[in-house]
């Protein structure tokens, strides 16, 4: 029975199916809020207020012709979209949603979660290089450079929370925040800001959408992907958005914890998770609407001049508090 329950958890709730469904809804919300901030309407006609639009886009792309150019590295080119999706879904499984611990949960899983994000970026790099396209190559190069920029402050801010909880286990971090309101908003606030900014870079959204900057290098590393592969990459991006906001919630906003009525945890926990991730999503979307795209050198500059020192400061603050 336990095995079956676990399988159900991985496949349906809060596992893969839930992740994909929620990812589509979040993409819709992201587009809707972005449109709202720009005084537009956003998706409108597919489903009520266009809620099915991301899903419809996905289906449409699945049905499109899948072009594989002659010059590409075929095994890599075909496998990379699946790799990317697998990585982001795996990450989602480790997030605490129904419980204070995720479906996958082990001591030290924070390191695993951060490594996953870097791996996704490496997949992106490979997909750019394997495409054998000039725009893709430039995109891959930029993705790698950008990784050098945002990875260190992101890790530092995540690790500072680990130091705060004296553990590298997301479960420990969430429970310590669940037990004390001070840890929830106090020492981690700077880290949260850094994490959200770096998350924006990880997700390649304005102002850090440099690797796929449309007006400069067409679609960057995505240029050669079409049909099913593009659909999978888009889904990856959506799941990654969800995963990143979930991780920010788990690390800085106390995960799914909140005031609960005993016996109703299984409803209230996912509800709190949704509310908190929505808040992070709103922050991410507002950032997207607020700025112009930076140049790659400016991004790396910004990151090493401001984000890294601030992240170190965050670690110091945490050190003093503990």
């Amino acid at each position: 029975m336990d095995f079956l329950l676990e399988l159900l958890q991985i496949l349906v709730f809060p596992g893969i199916l839930f992740a994909i469904g929620l990812a589509f809804v979040y993409e819709w919300l992201d587009r809707k809020i972005y449109a709202r901030l720009q005084n537009r309407v956003g998706p409108l006609y597919t489903g009520p207020s266009g809620i099915l639009q991301p899903f419809a886009d996905f289906i449409k792309l699945l049905a499109k012709e899948d072009v594989v150019p002659n010059e590409v590295d075929k095994p890599l080119f075909n496998a990379l979209p699946i790799f990317a999706l697998t990585l982001s879904l795996t990450g989602f499984l480790a997030l605490p949603i129904m419980d204070l611990r995720g479906v996958i949960s082990f001591n030290g899983d924070l390191i695993f979660l951060i490594a996953l994000m870097t791996l996704i970026c490496i997949v992106i790099m490979y997909s750019g290089i394997s495409s054998a396209n000039r725009f893709s190559t430039v995109g891959a190069e930029r993705a790698a450079l950008q990784l050098l920029g945002y990875e260190i402050p992101m890790m530092l801010s995540a690790i500072s929370i680990g130091i705060l909880a004296s553990s590298m286990w997301v479960y420990d971090i969430v429970s310590i925040q669940a037990n004390s309101l001070w840890f929830l908003i106090g020492p981690g606030i700077l880290g949260f800001a850094i994490f959200v900014l770096c998350g924006q870079a990880e997700l390649e959204r304005i102002p850090f959408d440099i690797p796929e900057a449309e007006t400069e290098i067409v679609a960057g590393w995505l240029t050669e992907f079409s049909g099913r592969k593009l659909a999978l990459f888009r889904l990856t991006k959506d799941v990654e958005l969800l995963y990143l906001s979930g991780l920010a919630v788990a690390l800085f906003l106390g995960g799914p914890s909140g005031p609960v009525i005993p016996g109703l945890e299984f409803i209230l926990y996912p509800l709190y998770f949704l509310l908190k991730t929505l808040f992070v999503l709103f922050l991410l979307t507002t950032l997207r609407a607020l700025f112009a795209r930076l140049r790659i050198d400016q991004m790396v500059n910004f990151s090493w001049k401001y984000l890294v020192p601030l992240a170190i400061l965050q670690v110091l603050i945490v050190r003093v508090v503990v």
Partner: peptide
């Protein structure tokens, strides 16, 4: 110009 530097919000406004 706003669109070329990726500032879509300004473009829309």
């Amino acid at each position: 110009a706003a669109h070329e530097i990726g500032f879509d919000t300004l473009f829309m406004y």
